[in-house]
Computed example of a mutant assay.
Amino acid sequence: MGPDSQKAGGGSNTGDTSTRLGETPQLVAMKAAAAESPEAAKLLDEWQRHITPLNFAQEELLERLIKGIHDYAEGNSVAYDGQMRALVCALIRFTARYLDQLQSGQRKVPWLRPEKTDLPGEDVLADSLDDALYFAGLNSKAEIANVGGGRVDVLVEFQRCRFAIEVKRELTHHTDDQLVSKYGTQAVQYAATDVTAVFLAVLDYFERQERLDIDAVFWTRQLQLDSLSRNYALTALRVQAHVDSPSASSRRSGYGRVSKPIKRV
Rank of each mutant, 00 (worst) to 15 (best):
G121I: 01
G121C: 00
D123L: 03
V124G: 05
V124H: 00
A126H: 01
D127C: 04
D130I: 13
Y134G: 09
Y134S: 14
F135S: 11
A136D: 10
A136S: 08
A136G: 00
G137Y: 02
L138D: 00
N139E: 09
N139G: 05
K141W: 08
A142W: 02
I144L: 07
A145Q: 03
A145V: 05
N146K: 07
N146G: 04
N146Q: 11
G148Q: 07
G148N: 03
G148K: 06
G149I: 04
G150A: 06
G150R: 03
R151F: 01
R151D: 02
R151C: 00
L155M: 15
V156M: 06
E157H: 04
Q159A: 07
Q159N: 06
R160W: 02
C161V: 13
F163Q: 04
F163V: 04
A164E: 07
I165P: 00
I165Y: 00
I165L: 05
V167A: 12
L171R: 11
T172D: 13
T172F: 13
T172N: 14
H173A: 15
H174N: 10
H174E: 14
T175M: 15
T175L: 15
D176W: 02
Q178A: 14
Q178S: 05
L179D: 05
V180L: 12
S181W: 10
S181D: 15
S181L: 13
K182C: 01
K182H: 06
G184E: 13
G184L: 12
T185N: 12
T185G: 09
T185R: 10
Q186N: 09
Q186V: 06
Q186P: 02
V188S: 01
V188L: 03
V188A: 04
A191L: 03
D194M: 13
D194P: 00
V195C: 12
V198I: 00
F199W: 00
L200V: 07
A201V: 08
V202S: 09
L203Q: 14
L203W: 11
D204T: 09
D204I: 14
Y205M: 11
F206V: 11
E207V: 03
E207L: 01
E207G: 00
R208Q: 11
R208M: 12
Q209W: 13
E210Q: 10
R211C: 11
R211Q: 14
R211S: 15
R211W: 09
D213N: 09
I214Q: 08
I214S: 10
D215M: 13
A216I: 12
V217R: 05
V217Q: 05
F218I: 07
F218P: 05
W219Q: 14
T220V: 14
T220W: 03
R221C: 10
Q222G: 13
Q222V: 11
Q222F: 07
L223G: 12
L223Y: 08
L223E: 12
Q224L: 06
L225E: 09
L225K: 06
L225F: 01
D226N: 02
D226E: 14
S227K: 13
S227F: 09
L228N: 13
S229F: 10
R230C: 11
